[in-house]
């Protein structure tokens, strides 16, 4: 991957074989991530609560312009 694309492995790539060698079924890999990342999630929840304002961004509207209501029989 490096030779062809200059792409580097991320945290997940060698985790696959490491977990496999420890006899962990593949479908339990992501749940282990939960057991770990739970600590980061909770730290961020505490930080958010300590200095909170509701997160409410806005969006750029790209939908149709204002248009007239069409009665159901005419659709």
């Amino acid at each position: 991957m490096w030779r062809e694309k200059k792409l580097f492995p991320n945290a997940d790539f060698y985790h696959a074989s490491a977990y496999h060698f420890m006899g962990i079924p593949t479908k339990l890999f992501t749940p282990i991530f939960v057991c770990s990342r739970l600590t980061g999630w909770c730290a961020h929840i505490f930080e958010q609560r300590a200095n909170n304002r509701i997160i409410r961004p806005s969006a750029d509207y790209v939908g149709p312009e204002k248009r007239a209501w069409v009665p159901i029989e005419q659709r």
């Binding site: 282990i32 980061g40 999630w41 961020h44 958010q48 609560r49």
Partner: peptide, 20 residues
């Protein structure tokens, strides 16, 4: 240890939005 924390990734940001 390696998976414990990674700033404002999608799941952490989800948790923060909910916490807010």
């Amino acid at each position: 240890i390696l998976y414990a924390e990674h700033e404002f990734n999608a799941s952490t940001f989800t948790a923060r939005v909910c916490a807010s």
